[in-house]
């Protein structure tokens, strides 16, 4: 499912809203989530999961082409931990009936 398919699915369930409004709402939510994470704030969505930042320590890397060493600075990367409901729903879909 892509972002535009997600928007279509929401429109189908919220027919009183215009597709334009739904599109704007989806973009606003994703932007707000990105903004929170990039300011160091966690996201906690009950039943879905949580997003947080994980720290990657500075390390010495190597350019695979030239073999030259490079000093890489410490950085943060986004991390998602699925919540129980999501884990169960996904795992059940894989079971043989």
């Amino acid at each position: 499912m892509t972002k535009s398919e997600l928007i279509e699915n929401i429109v189908a369930r919220q027919p009183q809203l215009s597709p334009k409004d739904v599109e704007l709402a989806v973009k606003t939510m994703l932007d707000y989530m990105s903004q929170s994470l990039s300011s160091g704030e966690r996201i906690e969505i009950r039943g879905f999961g949580s997003f947080s930042l994980h720290y990657r320590a500075p390390r010495t890397g190597r350019n695979p082409k030239t073999g030259e060493t490079v000093e890489l600075k410490g950085k943060y990367v986004p991390h998602f931990k699925p919540g129980k409901e999501l884990r169960d729903q996904v795992n059940d879909s894989g079971e043989e009936e």
């Binding site: 369930r13 739904v22 994703l30 989530m33 999501l86 059940d92 879909s93």
Partner: peptide, 24 residues
Amino acid sequence: MVDIFFDEIRDSLGRNEQVKLSGF
């Protein structure tokens, strides 16, 4: 809107369908 947004993503994954949100 917020509830449906996360429900739809979860349902898609529950159908074994990957979710791609460009930019995010």
